[in-house]
Amino acid sequence: MTTNVENVAPAALDQERLAALADRLVEGGGEVRNLRRLSGGASQETWAFDIEAQGRRSSMILRRAPGGTFQHETAAGLETEAAVIRSVAAHDVRTPPLCYVLDPEDGLGRGFFTRHVDGETIARKILRDDQFLDVRPRLTGEFGSILARIHGVPIADLPSLRAGEPADALDLMRRGVEELTGPRPVFALAIRWLEDRLPNPAPTCLVHGDFRLGNLIIGPDHVRAVLDWELCHLGDPMEDLAWLCATPWRFGQVDRPVAGLGQREELFAGYEAAGGTVDRARMRWWEVHSALRWGVNCASMVAVFRDGIDRSVERAMIARRASENEIDLLRLIYLGD
């Protein structure tokens, strides 16, 4: 289950220790300038900065555990995430080029550095701005082909990852629903639906786990990088295709199931053209799972809000969005939509 809770106050980043790493990040090193914390990705810290030397500027990104150390239970771990990025990059999946993985001796906590990649991550801009007019019709097919390449990465080339087969995913959801305080008959319905249709374990592959707008850098020409490998695991390839079609990731363009951009069949065509195999029944199962996954995530914010971890109005309002996922579940289960 994903969570956006930030359990640790944003820690400062020690600039002197960062400066000491400059020559490991860029050949010849340079001065660290313009260090800033980027918003978004609240379960990990993201910092941006430049390294400047002799009029040359290299833009860098540091992804770090909140406060340097906190890690959520389903997260792969930053060192593992870095190893996955290195592996998939070798198999024709665009990611931000990896520069350096933090060592405990660096004194900056856990995390890794990549080059900054130019482009847009904000869904509403990608869905509406004129500069993406040409690329928009191509993106759905491109998502399919990128996912096929991710799913085709040989497991032998990957670090050891958590197993996330359908049965594991269902267990995680059962636990999530049990921990909620309020009564949730629609979630109970979804659990039962998922139990009755539990697929056999699929041929296992690398699953990104959070492949959607927001985690993709899009240029006016194509997808430039796949970000946020934090939830990657080994499991059923259909999980990624279904998550990309979850209603919240359509950003209001509800009639375009794939990321608010295209139709499922276009995604499937791109996926199969790049060597993937689509299983529509499993896809359906994971679509219901995806709606439940996001619903449980929203509903679990009630406790986060009440227990004082985050008393913000924003957190309370996220908790009240669980009803959106319930209507999505009813649509999926009763109307097959």
Binding site: R320, S323, I327, R331
Partner: peptide
């Protein structure tokens, strides 16, 4: 009953939700 309860919640929580309109 499940539809009615959920729609009643959304009429308060997020009456303009696209998923509700589609349903």
């Amino acid at each position: 009953c499940l539809w009615a309860m959920t729609e009643a919640k959304l009429d308060v929580d997020q009456p303009g939700y696209a998923g509700l309109t589609r349903a």
